[in-house]
């Protein structure tokens, strides 16, 4: 459909009835209809994402009382604080470790489920998706009870085997381990379902051709499955990296950033400074630190995805 309207030099302005017809034509255009249909979503995105994002940038440049413009003052203050550097380190460890294990477990289980006979596959798929379907706050509370130092099921089991109690949430390193474990438990099914779909889209004949070419099971995985899934892996890792970096619920419910701020991630630290301590501009500055890190990784990952997409088709 062509949406170009040309007016040539010397052409007179159209009379009213012609303008009305032109208006009707404009409203009937497919691009106009498409835009009008998307408008509610655009308004919601603008109201709930773009406006708060721009407002938080503005907020991050103000003092605590929001009365004075500080420029990059909040950012330089944060960078001078050891706690903030620990939050950066902890966020990176949390996100990278959790995403790595989610991807690995997702890949292995996707392979296992894919190799199940088709009759039993649906049942297993459903069961393995349960962690992802349960409301996160609810399941995290369940984990919190499991990690309880005195009444927890885990410590009861360890004691049963003759071991000593593990301070799951009170020791900084065990607490880090625990929040990562829960994040992996929650997020792995998403990888499973994405990888399972990707596995099913690899043509069976490629495996047969590789088999005839002399590839064993591991070589088929290395030379056929992995390259064919590369784009899905990249996109799921990127998506999960964004979501995990911005994770709030698990850490907040299980440790609230403690002990000794050792499990804080960007979101919980921003909440601590902005809401709990009442310094909204500083909290906004913390949350804005995530943006360049994720934007840079998104650019690189998506560039790779586009390149492979062009090559493989």
């Amino acid at each position: 459909m062509v949406d170009i309207v040309r007016r040539y030099p010397g052409q007179l302005a159209k009379p009213a009835f012609q303008r009305r017809a032109g208006m009707r034509q404009f409203v009937r255009r497919r691009t106009t209809i498409a835009f009008l249909m998307c408008l509610p979503l655009i308004v919601i995105v603008a109201g709930l994402i773009i406006y708060p994002a721009l407002y938080s940038i503005f907020l991050a440049t103000l003092n605590k009382a929001q009365t004075r413009f500080l420029g990059l003052g909040n950012f330089s203050y944060l960078l001078s604080r050891d706690t903030f550097w620990m939050v950066i380190e902890q966020s990176a460890i949390f996100a990278l470790t959790a995403v790595f294990f989610k991807a690995l477990i997702g890949l292995v289980t996707a392979h296992l489920v894919n190799n199940l006979p088709s009759k039993g596959q649906r049942k297993w798929r459903g069961m393995l998706l349960v962690p992802w379907v349960i409301p996160l706050a609810l399941s995290t509370l369940g984990w919190w009870w499991l990690f309880d130092p005195t009444h927890s099921a885990f410590n009861w089991l360890i004691r049963g085997f003759g071991g000593t109690d593990v301070p799951w949430l009170s020791d900084p390193y065990w607490a880090r381990f625990s929040v990562i474990l829960v994040n992996v438990w929650y997020g792995a099914p998403f990888f499973l379902i994405m990888y399972l779909a990707a596995l099913k889209s690899v043509p069976e004949q490629l495996y047969e051709a590789a088999q005839i070419d002399g590839a064993n099971a591991w070589q088929r995985f290395l030379h056929i499955t992995l390259p064919m899934m590369q784009n899905i892996i990249a996109i799921t890792v990127l998506f999960s990296l964004i979501v995990t970096f911005a994770n709030f619920d698990i850490v907040q419910i299980m440790t609230a950033g403690g002990p000794r701020n050792m499990t804080h991630v960007f979101a919980t630290y921003a909440f601590l400074l902005g809401i709990r301590s009442g310094d909204l501009p500083l909290g906004a500055a913390v949350s804005l630190f995530m943006f360049p890190i994720l934007a840079v990784s998104a650019v690189f990952i998506l560039r790779g995805v586009r390149k492979r997409g062009r090559e493989i088709g």
């Binding site: 043509p203 490629l206 047969e208 051709a209 005839i212 590839a215 064993n216 056929i224 090559e311």
Partner: peptide, 20 residues
């Protein structure tokens, strides 16, 4: 004997070339 040890080569209907 698995296909890889039969020393055969096969051309498939849809060629089955490795796209990557």
């Amino acid at each position: 004997v698995p296909p890889k040890d039969r020393d055969i080569a096969m051309v498939f209907q849809n060629y089955a070339l490795y796209p990557h």
